[in-house]
Design a protein around this nucleic acid. Structure first.
Lengths: 121, 121
DNA sequence: GCCATATACTTTGCAACGCAAGGTATCTGG
DNA sequence: CCAGATACCTTGCGTTGCAAAGTATATGGC
């Protein structure tokens, strides 16, 4: 018996990058921090594991949407900070638009009262 | 060279089954018909190919969410009709709820004005 | 000093699923 | 008879979330 059916796995695909870019818009952050930050900001709905986050960040970096820099705090292990780039901002805008269109289309289909409304009956 | 990077591909995952169940709520339909029906009802946003649809339908059938029956029209090739089951109706309700929660969480994070609103500043 | 624990990053291998590409069979029209 | 539309099915691949395991540094208790 799963505490809360984590069947949402597939739902996350396609929005995780978008969500990450959004978080980095507020301020640069390091990976380990983002794991809990995502869970908090999405109220656990999009909780991800390290095995998901790091490859995801590498992809964003490859695409030039984020840039990195190592920083060594007074105490604790070194951190790799990620910040959003200009290109990343543009990508964020585009992908947000895409998400909204997608979301609206799905909602329109799900709408119980929709039922064709094409005119004919 | 992909004409338009099908980045939306990943977005579809997780909602396609839901959308299919929704369409079958209106009336039973056969596979080939659903390909164009989905495109029409979602204004092309969730357009899918046969290579996607059929395996998807098999999965739904395995899960007992839809049932099938062959029908041979007066003219044309035989058709395999899919209709939603009782279990399918329940699954639809649950998954719709899940979609709404997911959608709202994503929207809440994207919201430009959100910026923490935790109380502290 | 040593070891458990927490922090922080990385990698490997697996499974799910959309899709391109190809295949089969039936019917219709020229 | 054959081209094309209809309708269904299958194989193989790429992407990506995740479990699991590994590395390294710092801290506190003994």
């Amino acid at each position: 018996m799963t505490p809360t059916p984590p069947a949402d796995r597939e739902l996350k695909r396609g929005v995780l990058e978008l969500v990450l870019l959004r978080l980095l818009q507020d301020r640069p952050a390091y990976g380990y921090e983002l794991v809990s930050e995502i869970a908090r900001r999405t109220e656990g709905e999009l909780e991800i594991k390290e095995g998901t986050l790091y490859p995801l960040l590498y992809r964003l970096e490859e695409q030039g949407l984020v840039a990195t820099s190592w920083e060594t705090p007074e105490r604790g292990a070194p951190r790799k900070y990620y910040r959003i780039t200009e290109v990343g901002e543009q990508a964020f805008a585009e992908r947000t638009e895409r998400w909204r269109r997608f979301r609206d289309r799905v909602d329109a289909v799900l709408e119980p009262g929709a039922r064709e409304k094409k005119g004919e009956e």
